[in-house]
């Protein structure tokens, strides 16, 4: 829901793409994160295993979205569109779990 004024800028920035080097660096980072998450899965950290695994996955996803999918170089509108799905997913997760996690409080 950006204003009209943001549109011309977005047009200009839409074609700013990252340099090739960025792609390789991001790819490298993704591979390292993959190795890390696999490694962590062999260590028993209790509840932290899940937290770390999902956090690493989130970081990887953000890297892909920002760089491979060019959101970093895109208009604010694109940011909003890219975020919307995940925000609504969080609503679904949060509100659904609010039931399941509090069910045992009173029976």
């Amino acid at each position: 829901m950006t204003q009209q004024t943001s549109q011309p800028t977005s047009e200009r920035t839409a074609h700013q793409a990252p340099a090739l080097r960025t792609y390789y660096l991001i790819f490298l980072a993704l591979m390292l994160l993959l190795a890390l998450t696999v490694a962590v899965s062999f260590v028993d950290l209790g509840a932290f295993n899940e937290l770390i695994a999902l956090a690493i996955a989130a970081v990887k996803a953000v890297l892909v979205i920002l760089f491979f999918m060019h959101v970093r170089y895109s208009s604010r509108l694109t940011w909003v569109f890219a975020a919307a799905g995940f925000v609504w997913l969080l609503i679904m997760v949060g509100w659904t779990f609010s039931d399941y996690l509090s069910r045992g409080w009173m029976r």
């Binding site: 609504w88 509100w95 609010s98 039931d99 509090s102 069910r103 009173m106």
Partner: peptide
């Protein structure tokens, strides 16, 4: 999007959840 649980007040949903919804 935040109110769907009001269809479930007697369904066995947690009562705390019902309060939020």
């Amino acid at each position: 999007f935040l109110v769907w649980g009001h269809h479930m007040f007697v369904s066995g949903q947690s009562i705390y959840s019902s309060l939020i919804f």
